[in-house]
Design a protein around this nucleic acid. Structure first.
Length: 818
DNA sequence: GACTTGGAGGTACC
DNA sequence: ACTGGTACCTCCAAGTC
């Protein structure tokens, strides 16, 4: 039988003690297809140099006799092959060892401890990953498949199952999966402790809320069931009936699916939503992931966190904020309460609220699909994994999937003691940041290096496999510090070569996207950008297979050297450099813009390798301020206005979430007024008005909330700082507080009159939960001295205006003098 | 007891 | 633990006089 097929989900199972791969996907008519493939797991034993051929044959014979029997199954080596391979760039002879069952790879590898064996590798690589590499059955690519009907499964919910005989990659139209979004509402927050009150399901032309609560209304999307158990059964039915590829939730790995499983168990029913009739499988450990056989369960929260969060403005990654920013739609209003306390007519609101959550998840999933799909195609890992994995894992998987071209055997994942050792090493010297001079500057140009760290890695060939223990002829020498030099080979290593390709592809797809703006090209270009950006971090990441501290430190060192040299050149051309951070240089434009572009060309012609300097932009004006404690300029804090009047703020309180909105809004407005007008006059008037308002207690509570995230367990905080004290109080009040919760508080006047000689008591004693604070109850002194003034003081200082004394009556006269 | 200092903690920049 | 280092700033608590 011959069909067209696109792989969506991968899994493996044991049959007669051997491993079989099961791929679920679609055919050209969108029929659900499952493919079965026999696959023999393997790993490598790398031989030491100079082992004689005869000895190698002896060892192979010995290896072929190895068994690893357990109560679970009898495992053994199937056969061996001898190959000429590379390991970390060096030629090696290696024995490829095929085994009956992947799960016993470790047990068998442990028995290969002959003196002639240098290393054993790749027994720590996922079976699916190895399968995709070797058999080239890549996720979300179309294939023409020949195979025979496979009916050895009792019943599998697919239109057809084939055992693969031949496969060929083909070109076909882009695939779009059938997505369903879901969300549950429960009586208690803790997993399984309360009942599930309702479940919403949203797919294309499909909107439902399932509930077992009485239905005193006529909402057509609500379906009522006798009890929780019946509702859960209906949920299972819909998942089975609707023929979906992707089930998407938000925080659903940690909440919705575990909750559903727990409640199903309590009700004595099976949550058999897998195509094989199995229940969702929850992984053990801290980072729970919930898998459904044949259906890709995606927890969008995880994908958004690793892939979008750095580009989002949202203060938190709550569904409400993320949806609002990405799709311009919000959750409905609903104040959570136990179902027993919900009034009759409130239920409609509750159902609508629940439905809207799934609508948001559905739309977010549609929007994220190109990104998830492109990552899956580029990295060649299944959607389930790609949607959950961190950037370092993405980089690593990309490497592993591309080693074949280099004949490389993969390095092993570091074990715990190795990780510990790496972490003990501490930090190495990083980027250069220019010491700015506080002031308001006119006409500024910004240059920046494109993907600077990646370009450095490629240009200087930095990586684990090119790192040399000692100086060799024709090697690159890098000064890390005065008495620490390291060396790298000139011969190209696979890591820099791969990175160069990533950078090239990023450029290519960026260009293609500009010519043909569609979501997929954008996603493709973006995926390569993210991979390139994470590569340097990967080199210095303690958990990386290809960790190389020297390479990471050298990357930073060479980037420093490069930027400092460029700064010098720009200075020599007669420009005043005012700022620089890592890969960017700001300088004053005292000549025509044409001259600047000419200089840029010249600078580029002198740069080595793929290093490239780019014009980031011209700005009409910019402000740099001093640090709060000293008079020297603050780094990483500045604001710019471009020729179109667009303002860019970096580092100021305005862009920090741990400052109250009042301080942020006022600072932002002051920055804007100053940059637009070129002086502080209007800004001072504005500030004066605000101070009056604060004094008159006219500021809304919402503008006074200070938000700080709880980053660890409450008990492990050394000092009792305001947000931790408030968090404790929230816990006592039965509010959900855990690591990651954004704690909100308002500082109120000292009720206990703890004032000591006119000075207020500790902030934590005055930090109050926002809904316990009445309008106008806030502490004027705190918000003036600890929020407003610190936020604007250094800005006005640039104009020699002392704002500290503004709140006193006298100084107001002083302002009128301006 | 008032003031200084340093560390913990959080969040930004690139 | 889940990419890296650099930097700012607040609040508290210990240290100093």
């Amino acid at each position: 039988m011959k069909i067209k097929f696109i792989p969506i989900d991968y899994d493996y199972f044991d049959w007669n003690e051997r491993n079989f791969i099961k791929i679920v996907g679609r055919d050209e008519n969108n029929k659900r297809v499952c493919l079965i493939d026999e696959y023999t797991a393997s790993f490598w034993a790398i031989l030491k140099d100079d082992v004689s051929d005869k000895k190698i044959e002896d060892i192979r014979k010995k290896i072929e006799k190895i068994k690893a029997d357990s109560s679970l199954r009898n495992s053994s080596v199937v056969r061996t092959e001898l190959h000429n391979k590379k390991f970390l760039g060096k030629n090696v002879k290696a024995i490829k060892i095929f085994i009956t069952n992947y799960k016993d790879g470790h047990a068998i590898a442990d028995q290969i401890d002959f003196d002639e064996i240098e290393k054993r590798r790749e027994y720590d690589i996922n079976l699916i990953t190895k399968y995709i590499i070797e058999k080239k059955v890549k996720p979300l690519m179309w294939y023409e498949v020949e195979g025979e009907i496979f009916d050895k499964f009792g019943s599998y919910d697919a239109d057809i199952c084939l055992k693969i005989e031949r496969m060929k990659e083909i070109q076909e139209k882009e695939f779009f999966p059938k997505i369903m979004a879901y969300d549950i509402e429960t009586d208690k927050f803790e997993i399984g402790r309360g009942k599930i009150v309702m479940i919403s399901l949203v797919a294309k032309n499909f909107k439902k809320v399932l509930t077992w609560k009485k239905c005193p209304h006529n909402l057509d999307f609500v379906e009522c069931y006798k009890d929780e158990a019946e509702m859960l059964e209906a949920f299972v039915d819909y998942i089975q009936k609707e023929n979906i590829d992707v089930l998407a939730g938000y925080f659903s790995d940690n909440f919705d699916l575990p909750y559903l499983r727990a409640r199903a168990e309590k009700n004595g029913i099976k949550l058999s939503i897998g195509l094989d009739g199995s229940q969702p499988k929850l992984s053990k450990g801290n980072a729970i992931s919930a898998r459904i056989d044949g259906i890709v369960h995606i927890d969008l929260f995880k994908f958004i966190k690793t892939n979008y969060s750095q580009y989002l403005q949202s203060e938190t990654l709550s569904l409400n904020e993320v949806a609002s920013e990405l799709i311009g739609e919000k959750k409905l209003e609903w104040k959570h309460k136990h179902s027993s306390k919900i009034e009759k007519d409130e239920w409609i609101k509750y159902f609508e609220y629940n439905l809207q959550d799934s609508v948001l998840v559905y739309k977010l999933m549609e929007k994220s699909w190109p990104d998830i799909m492109e990552f899956s195609k580029i990295i060649r890992e299944p959607l389930f994994n790609v949607s959950r994995e961190s950037m370092s894992v993405h980089v690593e998987n990309y490497i592993i999937h591309n080693l074949e071209k280099f004949d490389e055997i993969a390095e092993k994942r570091p074990l715990n003691d190795e990780i510990l050792k790496r972490r003990m090493l501490g930090k190495y010297e990083g980027a250069f940041v220019f010491q700015p001079q506080p002031g308001l500057y006119e006409d500024i140009a910004f240059f920046d290096f494109t993907s600077m760290y990646s370009s450095v890695i490629v240009t200087y060939n930095l990586s684990l496999s090119t790192f040399l223990e000692k100086k060799e002829i024709n090697s690159t020498e890098v000064f890390l510090s005065e008495n620490h030099k390291v060396y790298f080979a000139k011969e190209k290593g696979f890591f820099p070569v791969m990175l160069e390709e990533i950078i090239k592809k990023r450029k290519q797809y960026k260009k293609e996207y500009k010519e043909n703006q569609n979501a997929i090209l954008k996603a493709r270009s973006n995926a390569f950008k993210l991979l390139a950006n994470a590569s340097y971090g990967y080199l210095g990441f303690f958990g990386a297979r290809y960790y190389c501290r020297e390479a990471a430190a050298s990357t930073a060192a060479l980037a420093r050297k490069s930027i400092l040299e460029t700064i010098e050149k720009i200075k020599k051309k007669g420009y005043k450099v005012i700022y620089s951070d890592t890969d960017s240089i700001a300088f004053l434009v005292n000549k025509t813009q044409k001259k600047i572009i000419e200089m840029l060309k010249e600078l580029n012609s002198e740069l080595p390798g793929i290093m490239e300097l780019d014009l980031e932009g011209f700005y009409k004006r910019g402000i740099w301020v001093s640090k709060r404690t000293t008079t020297e300029g603050a780094k990483k804090k500045y604001a710019l206005i471009d020729e179109d009047g667009k303002i860019k703020v970096r580092g100021f309180e305005t862009v920090r979430r741990d400052w109250c909105r009042l301080a942020k809004k006022v600072q932002n407005e002051i920055i804007s007024l100053i940059l637009k007008n070129g002086n502080e006059k209007k800004a001072l008037e504005y500030f004066n008005e605000i101070v009056k308002k604060v004094n008159k207690k006219e500021i809304e509570n919402d503008d006074l909330i200070i938000k700080t995230q709880l980053k660890k367990e409450i008990s492990s905080y050394a000092a009792s700082i305001p947000h931790v004290v408030v968090a404790k109080r929230m816990l006592e009040a039965g509010l959900p507080v855990r690591i990651g919760t954004l704690i909100e508080y308002i500082v109120v006047e000292d009720k206990q009159k703890n004032m000591k000689r006119g000075k207020p008591g500790l902030v934590r004693e005055r930090a109050e939960l926002p809904d316990r604070v009445a309008q106008g109850e806030y502490d004027v002194e705190y918000y003036l001295n600890n929020q407003l003034i610190p936020a604007v003081e250094n800005i006005f200082e640039v104009f020699n205006v002392d704002v500290k004394s503004l709140k006193d009556g006298k100084t107001q006269k002083k302002i009128s003098e301006f």
